[in-house]
Design a protein around this nucleic acid. Structure first.
Length: 554
DNA sequence: AAGACTGCCAACCGCAAGTGG
DNA sequence: GCCACTTGCGGTTGGCAGTCT
C-alpha cells in the first residue's frame, strides 16, 4: 500500500513523464477501441489527473466516454478501476487496522469472497484491498497450517446459526430445528464435508446421492451460504434459474431467495469439489429425501445401502437466517468483543493440518477452506486433546480400555469398525484419525506423534483456551463408549442401556456447554422426539469440541 | 552478496447483471 | 423479447520490495 505502481511499475516515475503522459513508454496493447490503441499497465500521475478532472466535470460513470472525451487512452473498465481503487476521495490508505482486520475476518466468515459487500462495511477501503489482504492472509495461514478463522468467529457463527434458526423458526422447538431445519448445525457439518471432505468422519458415503441433492438441502441453508468457501459458494454472480435444480427452484425460491444463488453457484464445480457426481436423471423426490438423509443420520452400509434410521422429510423448508440476508445490517451482528487482542495468537491455538495431509488431490483447495474448516479442525484438535486427557485419566480405570493406547490405536481399533463403514467420500474414519493425528504433526517443524502434538498444543494454548472441565467431562463419553466419535451416536442407541448412561452424561455435558436454554432444548428434543441421536451427534460433536469458555456462551 | 522466498499491491481479464433502445 | 452496451464483481497475474537463507 505504501507505494503505487504508477511510480514504480515501469521504472518510470510519474514525475518523469514527459510531454505526452498518455503515450509515455509505448506500453500499448494490441487491443484497440475504435482503432485507438489503448494503454495498459500502470497509471501515470498525468493519467490520473486527466481522469480526476474528467470525473470532476462529468461525475462517475459512463467510463467508456472517458477515453472519448478526455483522450485518455484507457478503456472504461480501467478508468473505473483506477478511480474506484485509487483516485476517488475518502479512500483510506495504509495498512488495515486491527479493527478492520477483525472485521474482515468476521465478514468473510459470513459472506465469503464478497469483497465488494465487505468493502461496503469498511469505509474507505476497496474490495481490491480487502481481497488482496485476504488472499495474503490465506497464503500466510495456509503455510503456517493455521485455520483461517479464529475460534471466536467460529463460535459466533455457530451461535448466530442457532439464533437465526430460533428466530426464523419462531416457536419451533429444537426438534423442529433439527428435524425440519436440520440444516442448522448439520449445515456446518455439510460445509465441513466440503472443506474437509477427506477428513470428515461422520458424513456417510452416499454413492447414490447426487451432489445436487446434497446441495439442495444445504444450499438453502444459512451456513452453507455463509461458510461456503469462496470458490464454491458463489462461483458466479447470481443469475436466474438454471437447469441444475429445476425441480426445486419453484418451491424453494419462494422461501429462500438465496437458493437461486446456490443452485447456480453450486454447479458442477461444486459437485466436483465434493467428489461426487450427479446421477443420471435425478428424481426430485428422491433428491429431497436423500439429501436430508445425508444429514439425518443415514449411514451407509458396507454395501453402499443405507440404514433405515434416517427420517424422511416431507416438508422441506428453506429458511434464511437473518444474517444471511445480503442486506443484513451487519452492525447488528455480534461484536468481536470476545476476540483476543491478536487474532493470530488465537489462531495459533487451532493448528490446521498441513494442506498436503488434509486434502487430497481433486478435493477442495485448502484455499477454499473456510470457517467450517476451522470449526472442524478445532473439533479434531480438541478431540485429540481430550483423547489424550482421558487417556491418562482412564488408564487405570478400565483394563483393556480402548483408550489405553495411543490415539492412533484408538483410531485403528475401536473406531475402526464403524468408522470404516461411515467413511465420508470414501475415506475411512480410521484414516481420518490417522490423518488428523499425522497431519497435526506432519509439519516439518511440528512434532510428529499424536501425543507430542497434543502436548505441544496444551503448552501453546492460551490460558483462556484450556479445556474446561465440562469439555473434558465429555471426552470419556466419546472414547470409553467405544464409538468412533460422538458423531456415531446412533451406535449408542444400538447398544441399548449403554446409550442411556452415555446419553445422560452427554446431555449434562451439553447442558453445561450450551447453557440452560439450549440444553433444555436439547433435553426436550432427546426426550420427546424421534430425532435420531445421529443427528444430534453431529451437532453435539461440534459443540463438545468447541474450545470456548462458558463465559463466551450467550 | 546473491538467490529464493514472501508480502504486498496494482491492474487486467472474463463473466454476469443491469439498463436502455 | 432481443440486443448492445455499461457497470460491477471476483479471480488471477505480474512486478517490486523486503526478508530470509
Amino acid at each position: 500500500m505504501g507505494h503505487t505502481k504508477t511510480e514504480r511499475g515501469n521504472g518510470i516515475s510519474s514525475e518523469d513523464q514527459t510531454a505526452s503522459p498518455l503515450i509515455d513508454d509505448g506500453d500499448f496493447e494490441a487491443a484497440t477501441d475504435g482503432g485507438v490503441a489503448l494503454k495498459k499497465g500502470p497509471w501515470t500521475s498525468a493519467e490520473d489527473a486527466i481522469l480526476i478532472n474528467y470525473v470532476k466535470k462529468h461525475g462517475e460513470g459512463n467510463w467508456n466516454a472517458v477515453q472519448k472525451h478526455s483522450g485518455l487512452l484507457r478503456c472504461g473498465k480501467s478508468c473505473r478501476l483506477r478511480w474506484a481503487n485509487h483516485l476517488r476521495p475518502n479512500l483510506k490508505k495504509g495498512a488495515f487496522t486491527q479493527e478492520e482486520e477483525e472485521l474482515i475476518v468476521e465478514l468473510h466468515s459470513k459472506m465469503g469472497n464478497k469483497w465488494a459487500r465487505m468493502a461496503a462495511h469498511l469505509p474507505g477501503r476497496t474490495d481490491n484491498e480487502i481481497k488482496n489482504y485476504w488472499n495474503t492472509r490465506i497464503k500466510r495461514r495456509q503455510r503456517a497450517g493455521l485455520p483461517l478463522y479464529p475460534p471466536e468467529v467460529c463460535m459466533q457463527a455457530l451461535q448466530e446459526s442457532h439464533t437465526a434458526s430460533a428466530v426464523n423458526g419462531g416457536d419451533k422447538g429444537p426438534h423442529d430445528i433439527l428435524q425440519n431445519d436440520n440444516y442448522e448445525i448439520p449445515d456446518v457439518v455439510f460445509d465441513n464435508l466440503k472443506a474437509n471432505q477427506n477428513v470428515f468422519p461422520y458424513v456417510p458415503e452416499l454413492p447414490g446421492i447426487s451432489a445436487s441433492s446434497m446441495l439442495m438441502k444445504d444450499l438453502g441453508s444459512s451456513q452453507f451460504y455463509s461458510f461456503m468457501p469462496p470458490t464454491i459458494y458463489c462461483q458466479k454472480r447470481l443469475r436466474g434459474p438454471t437447469a441444475f435444480f429445476p425441480d426445486y427452484s419453484g418451491v424453494v425460491k419462494s422461501e429462500c431467495p438465496l437458493f437461486e444463488q446456490f443452485e447456480d453457484g453450486m454447479s458442477n464445480k461444486a459437485a466436483q469439489s465434493f467428489g461426487v457426481s450427479f446421477p443420471i436423471g435425478p428424481d426430485p423426490a428422491a433428491k429431497k429425501s436423500q439429501s436430508f438423509g445425508v444429514f439425518q443420520g443415514s449411514h451407509s452400509l458396507p454395501n453402499g445401502s443405507f440404514s433405515a434410521s434416517d427420517p424422511t422429510l416431507e416438508g422441506v423448508k428453506f429458511e434464511l437466517p437473518s444474517f444471511q440476508d445480503p442486506e443484513t445490517d451487519f452492525s447488528n451482528w455480534g461484536t468481536l468483543s470476545c476476540l483476543p487482542p491478536l487474532l493470530e495468537s488465537v489462531d495459533a491455538f487451532i493448528q490446521s493440518p498441513p494442506p498436503s495431509s488434509g486434502l487430497e488431490s481433486g478435493s477442495i483447495s485448502p484455499l477454499n477452506s473456510g470457517l467450517l474448516d476451522a470449526v472442524f479442525h478445532e473439533a479434531k484438535t480438541l478431540s485429540s486433546v481430550k483423547n489424550h486427557a482421558s487417556d491418562k485419566s482412564s488408564n487405570s480405570s478400565t483394563p483393556g480400555d480402548i483408550t489405553e493406547s495411543s490415539d492412533f490405536d484408538i483410531c485403528k481399533t475401536t473406531r475402526g469398525k464403524c468408522a470404516e463403514t461411515l467413511s465420508p467420500m470414501g475415506h475411512s474414519a480410521s484414516s481420518l484419525f490417522s490423518e488428523c493425528i499425522s497431519a497435526s504433526g506432519s509439519s516439518s517443524d511440528e512434532p510428529s506423534s499424536a501425543e507430542t502434538f497434543t502436548e505441544s498444543h496444551q503448552k501453546s494454548e492460551p490460558a483462556d483456551n484450556v479445556l474446561t472441565p465440562e469439555i473434558q467431562k465429555a471426552a470419556p463419553i466419546q472414547l470409553d463408549s467405544g464409538h468412533s466419535d460422538t458423531l456415531f451416536a446412533s451406535n449408542w442407541l444400538e447398544q441399548g442401556s449403554d446409550y442411556d448412561a452415555d446419553q445422560t452424561v452427554m446431555t449434562d455435558a451439553i447442558a453445561t456447554l450450551l447453557g440452560d436454554d439450549l440444553s433444555s432444548e436439547y433435553k426436550n428434543m432427546e426426550a420427546g422426539t424421534s430425532i435420531s441421536s445421529q443427528e444430534w451427534g453431529i451437532g453435539s460433536c461440534l459443540w463438545n469440541n468447541m474450545p470456548f469458555e462458558m463465559s463466551e456462551l450467550p
